[in-house]
Nucleic acid binder design. Structure first.
Length: 277
DNA sequence: AAATCAGACAACCGCGTGTTC
DNA sequence: CGAACACGCGGTTGTCTGATT
């Protein structure tokens, strides 16, 4: 018998100063969901009074944020998400909520747990006979430094590759814009659909905004393929949505904002991604 | 088959910060 | 301006579950 079943069936949990503690029951979940549906998120301390729950505000908020929220992404952390976690952790450290903001549908708690079980151990120095904590600390620090160096190296390589691609994109984009302007100015309607630029979000937007009769849906979809950070190709056929993937692409290159003003398409993507962060 | 261990995850706790009165 | 309250965050704990011995 599963824990959820047991708690749901028998209503386990302790009472502390009038507040229930421990695992949530299905009935409590229902009450909380109903409360949020009617009153919205926030005012967590009113939940007990308004929803008839014997839970404190903290507990309610936690349950909602980590488990009941409808936009939560269920299932295992994907390799792509994992690489984002690694990257963000290298940058932000244990700022789980910050990291979580870059992974829509994932909670800070989830990421924190994932990190602890998957990476925490790996960063620990290998056990040796020395009880010298300073030595261990130094070793740990060096390992972390090396890990960071490695990450930076990888980023650098990626950056160079992307900058090269961006140059090509921009050239392409300019050509494309001219064509569009010309066509909008009443020139002869284009008989063949112009090739959309590489920028995935841009392509999607334009494909939506402009009708291209000779472009099949399949062709438009295939335009959304782009290399993922781990070298694999992520396509529209993956279980994550293209829009989300696009956001990642933008988030991966935040450094570009300061360093590469020429990358207008990127900057544009950032502005698109910002509301989700 | 039973015992042990490690991974996974939900939930709690303490603290810091922002907001309201 | 300061106290009280609400909220969010990060650390930690407790328990289940599946794998291994």
């Amino acid at each position: 018998m599963s824990w959820a079943l047991m708690t749901g069936q028998f209503g386990w949990g302790s009472i502390d100063e009038g507040w229930r503690k421990g695992p949530w029951t299905a009935e409590e979940d229902k009450l909380l969901i109903e409360y949020v549906r009617v009153h919205g998120e926030g005012r967590w301390n009113s939940v007990a009074r308004l929803a008839g729950l014997r839970r404190n505000g903290k507990s309610c908020r936690l349950r909602w944020v980590n488990y009941l929220r409808p936009d939560l992404k269920r299932g295992q952390i994907t390799p792509h998400e994992e690489s984002i976690i690694l990257e963000m952790h290298a940058r932000w450290g244990n700022r789980w909520s910050t990291i979580a903001r870059s992974l829509p549908g994932r909670t800070d708690n989830e990421i924190k747990n994932y990190w602890r079980t998957h990476f925490k151990k790996k960063t620990k120095p290998s056990p040796d006979n020395s009880s010298d904590h300073k030595t261990k600390a130094r070793l740990l620090k060096r390992q972390q430094f090396q890990q960071q160096q490695l990450l930076q190296q990888q980023q650098q390589q990626l950056l160079q590759q992307q900058q090269q691609e961006e140059q090509e994109e921009l050239q392409y984009l300019n050509q494309f814009d001219m064509k569009r302007i010309m066509s909008l100015l009443g020139e002869t309607a284009q008989k063949s659909a112009p090739e959309l630029p590489y920028v995935p979000q841009l392509r999607q937007e334009m494909a939506t905004a402009v009708s291209y009769p000779n472009t099949t849906e399949e062709q438009q979809q295939s335009a959304l393929f782009y290399p993922a950070i781990d070298g694999n190709v992520t396509g529209s056929g993956s279980d994550t949505s293209n829009e989300v993937e696009v956001l990642w692409d933008g988030l991966w290159n935040l450094d570009d904002i300061n360093g590469n003003l020429g990358a207008t398409s990127k900057v544009w993507l950032y502005s698109l991604a910002t509301p989700f962060c």
